[in-house]
């Protein structure tokens, strides 16, 4: 049986309640957008396989509840991630201001070599914009992150931003990756490096639908 993937790793979506984390994820994994959806309570995840530089990359993307009090639960998942999306809503100044808090939480609870990317979502709602693109750019630069404005609704910059973070994670784990290239049979499970979990191929997982 052909290998399902070469590398497996985890990404995490963080940001205030209502910025569109679940919709970004649904758009990316299922290319769907549901105007009618429910708030996320607790944690949820989806999987998708990408091919980057000839490497089959299977990513598990964890979606979290945005309300502050859920952080006691979601923080437990920070340390298991290799990459993090910090998401705000361009129509909400407050969600943008909170990015600093989210970033400092990541610094505190996530592994050192974690890769981060800044996302300003709902770019289609230009008439309601409260956060200028320049502000997003500047913040990203200050933190040394890449920055994308996205729209889950119009499918703008979705694949681009997810692929970019995946590339960053791959680059940050280049050493392990080179080892992988040397061996033909093994697959690299970045997600399992921190904890010895019996993660097997996620073939069954990939066939299910969208939960949102």
């Amino acid at each position: 049986m052909a290998k399902q993937y070469d590398v497996l790793f985890r990404l995490l979506l963080l940001g205030d309640s209502g910025v569109g984390k679940t919709c970004l994820l649904c758009r990316f994994t299922d290319n769907e957008f549901h105007p009618s959806h429910i708030s996320t309570i607790g944690v949820d995840f989806k999987m998708k396989t990408l091919e980057i530089d000839g490497i089959k990359v299977r990513i598990q993307i964890w979606d979290t509840a945005g309300q502050e009090r859920y952080q006691t639960i979601t923080k437990q998942y920070y340390r298991r991630a290799q990459g993090i999306f910090l998401v705000y809503d361009i129509t909400s100044e407050r969600s943008f201001q909170h990015i600093m808090k989210w970033a400092s939480d990541v610094d505190e609870y996530a592994p050192d070599n974690i890769q981060r990317i800044l996302i300003g979502n709902k770019s289609d709602e230009e008439e309601k914009r409260q956060v200028a693109t320049g502000q997003g750019n500047k913040l990203a630069k200050d933190y040394g992150m890449d920055f994308f404005e996205t729209s889950a609704s119009t499918n703008y910059n979705i694949t681009e931003s997810f692929t970019r973070l995946a590339e960053q994670v791959l680059a940050a784990n280049k050493k392990d990756l080179d080892l992988l290239r040397a061996s033909v049979t093994d697959e690299l499970n970045l997600a399992a490096l921190e904890e010895e979990e019996g993660i097997t191929d996620g073939a069954a997982a990939s066939q299910k639908g969208c939960w949102c």
């Binding site: 949820d44 995840f45 999987m47 598990q60 979990e197 019996g198 993660i199 097997t200 996620g202 069954a204 997982a205 299910k208 939960w211």
Partner: peptide, 15 residues
């Protein structure tokens, strides 16, 4: 047997 892993298990419990 058909559900060997954390993610497969979680998928099952979500559906």
């Amino acid at each position: 047997k058909a559900c060997q892993g954390q993610y497969e298990t979680m998928e099952l419990l979500r559906a």
